[in-house]
Amino acid sequence: MDFEFILKHIPMYTEAAILTIKLGVMGILLSIIVGILCVLIQYYKVPIIRRIVSVYIELSRNTPLLVQLFFLYFGLPKMGIKISSEACAVIGLTFLGGSYMAESFRSGLESVDKIQTESALSLGLTKAKAMRYVILPQALSTSIPAICANVIFLIKETSVFSAVALADLMFVAKDLIGLYYKTDEALLMLVISYLIILLPASIFASYLERRLRYAGFGN
């Protein structure tokens, strides 16, 4: 193992890791927003748009991120729409994550008893306020474990970003292997980089889950 090589290339990995985190965080936040929108559209049975959401969810869940990225990066320019690698990565991750988030929120919403909406309405709350103050807080806390699982899943999925020419962790590792044939070192650093990103996320997720279990409102 060439430790000198490893030390020398830490900055490269750090930079790549920061890019991965940056794009990952943006994609995940947007996924959450898209997920909430989709699930509200379905919950309130908004006509027409609701069908579009169903199609989107099927499409998103049944195609690999790599294929989605290829479509964005190589397919769209052929139709005259050119977007940057970063935008492709964020849009792709959001397209994938939105449906997963929507499913998690949906199971949370469905776990809230109908009587909760009715008693909120009977206090004079509008549907929107009942959703905001009564239903969503309960739904979210039920959804959190599933949402955390999605976050970790999506971070792992970022490893295909190099396919659209982004200098992410995967890209750097492949690059170093190609240039110096230091396969062991490059891969070791790749694994460690992902662990450094994912372990805290996992630990935080299980902490959240534990907190929620103890808070355990409901019955």
Binding site: D113, I115, Q116, E118, S119, A120, S122, V134, P137, Q138, S141, F217, G218, N219
Partner: peptide
Amino acid sequence: IGMVFQSYDLFPH
């Protein structure tokens, strides 16, 4: 019009 239901309907959170 105030209403109280049979099932306990307090907001648990």
